[in-house]
Every structure is written in structure tokens, then in C-alpha cells.
Design a protein around this nucleic acid. Sequence first.
DNA 1: CAGAATTGTTAGACATGTCTAACAATTATA
DNA 2: TATAATTGTTAGACATGTCTAACAATTCTG
Lengths: 165, 165
Amino acid sequence: MVRQEAQREQTASMEDYLETIANLGEGRKVVRVKQISEMLGVKMPSVTSALKKLSEQELVEHERYGHIKLTPEGDKVARDVIRRHKALTRFFAQALGIDHETAEEDACKIEHVISPLSMERLAKFVEFIGACPLGRTNFPSRYEYYLEHGELPQDCSNRSVKKRK
Amino acid sequence: MVRQEAQREQTASMEDYLETIANLGEGRKVVRVKQISEMLGVKMPSVTSALKKLSEQELVEHERYGHIKLTPEGDKVARDVIRRHKALTRFFAQALGIDHETAEEDACKIEHVISPLSMERLAKFVEFIGACPLGRTNFPSRYEYYLEHGELPQDCSNRSVKKRK
DNA sequence: CAGAATTGTTAGACATGTCTAACAATTATA
DNA sequence: TATAATTGTTAGACATGTCTAACAATTCTG
């Protein structure tokens, strides 16, 4: 319950800017203030202002009216945000069966606040159910049945565990 | 990626205050500014200021130097935050095997940003693995093996699925 | 019950991050 | 290439939520 700001390196906002710049810059594409502003749903002056802060921290290279580019350090931070984002999206979509849009929205929020430990475990969970056929057949199918019918499938009781031959 | 503030009823901060007041008030206990401030790790003037806002919204009853109490509406909001908090804590602790302290911290953050759909699914997931013995035996035990050894347990491969008799 | 200790409030500063309005630079095009 | 359209920046307002310092009320205690 205690809210003792865990001294994150970056705020959620700044992480969003870095993430967006990395995504827009994929494949050496030129990144523009306008694009960033549209992607994040903010006005251009907000972007300019964020770029100024990120430049001061040497996470972004940016000169007036000029190019926008992540520094190696900025890229490192961005990659990490993107890694969390992807793992969370996979979790919501693949493990919980959430529609992709909602999965994305939740990932966007949670990526900024989740602890490294939970993040790691969550990623492993997704890996696990993807990799383990037993996980896949026993978990998702019965889980989906449960979601749909609100009660456990027939073979899901203490008795059936033993009885099965 | 778009950050179009989903018009939450309350900000994360205000939700934290409501949640804390509800928790401190359990069993008709008197709630004090000092306690709230300690619980949330903020100074007392921050609490006074938050109480003023919440009073204006009629979520809290508070008179100068007097009692602090949730209105029925405030209680409704607080209960909902607490419900999310508990479900998230259970998920991290019971499903992912995270230590209780970290589970709490993550719940505290995520409770303010997760979508209703994901929240519901996540709760159902925890219910499911708690209720379904097949879920329990097939999922957590192999999952834990995977966490510990970094690779799948022996009976977890396409071959073994068929072979098992 | 009076002074001391504690608790609570007010006023106002500050940080973050957003916005609008006005202006400047760049780019496209007639 | 001059002008129009677009893109980007600056300046400054505003909202949220925190803090410190100073003061006020309440409660404890000798």
C-alpha cells in the first residue's frame, strides 16, 4: 500500500516517448515530431518539450528542426520498454485470451509499473504454456471452457484425477 | 501505444486515498490523517489536500479536525479498488509464485491501470487454477519445474503426451 | 487545568507534463 | 523561386499532486 516512488529511471511519459521513437525509427526511418505526437495522442509542443528533456539526459539526439534519434543509451532503455510491452501483450492475448486491442492498451499501462520479478515470471509463464504441450492441452482448453460456461469441465474434479486411466 | 487517457473516474492517487481510508476504517475504527499519511508514504498536508478534493466530490465526509469517513459512493469506489488489489495480489502470489511483498507492490500499481476485461479474466484465471485439480496438478507443478530448471519437465513434450498410458 | 506534545491545516513553492496561441523554419508547388 | 502549406518551436497558462514552513486545534499529562 505504501507509495514510495521506486525511483524509476524514467517516468511513464518519458518511457512512452522513447518507446515510440524506437518503434518509428525501425529500419532507419526518419522520425518526426508530428508522428510522435500522433502516436502518443499528444500535441506537438509536448513532444518538443519531452525531446528537450530526453536530450539533456542524453537519451535522444535532437537539434532544432532537425533529426530525432535515440542515443545508444536511449535505445537500450527503449528496447527494454518494448520487451516488457511485448511480453505483456502476449500474456494478455495468448494466456488470458483478451482481444488484441485491449491487450495492447493494458500492456501500454502496465509496462511502466510492473516489477522486474513479476515481469520475468510473467514472460516465463507465457513461454511455458507455449512450449509445454501438457500446459497447452490441460491449461488453455479447460480454462476456456471455464470462461465460457462459468463452471469447471467434467473431467476437472478430484475424482476424475484419480479415475482417469 | 496511443495514450488517450481513458477518463478514469479517479486518478491513481485518489484511488489510493479511498482504498487506504477503507482499509483503515475496517470495523468502524476511527481514521486519522496521520495514519493515512503514513500508510501512503506522503506528508500530512498532502492528505488534507486530497481529503478536500474527495469531499468536494462527495466521496468522503471530512470536517476540519474532525472525523474522516467514506460516503456510500466513496465506499463503493474503494471496495472496487480493493477487489482489484486482492485479485492482483492473488494472481502474482499464487499463480506466478511471487513473494508476497512484491505481489503487493505490483498490485498497488496495476490496480489503477488495468482494464475491466483483463481484470476479470485474471481473476477467473486464479479461480480456475485454484478450483481445478487438473489445472493445479498439471499447471503449477510443471510450471515450477520450468522456473527452477529453465527447461521443460520430462513428461512435457509432444512425444510424451501420446506415449503416456 | 495549564503547558507540552501531538495532530491537523493553511499558504505557497515546486515538479511534471499537458495544452493553446503565436511565431519561425522547412518543404512543396504553382 | 515566391508563396502557400506544413511542420516545429517558444512562451506561458493550467492541472495534479507533492512538499516545507508556519500556525492552529486537539489531546495528553503532571
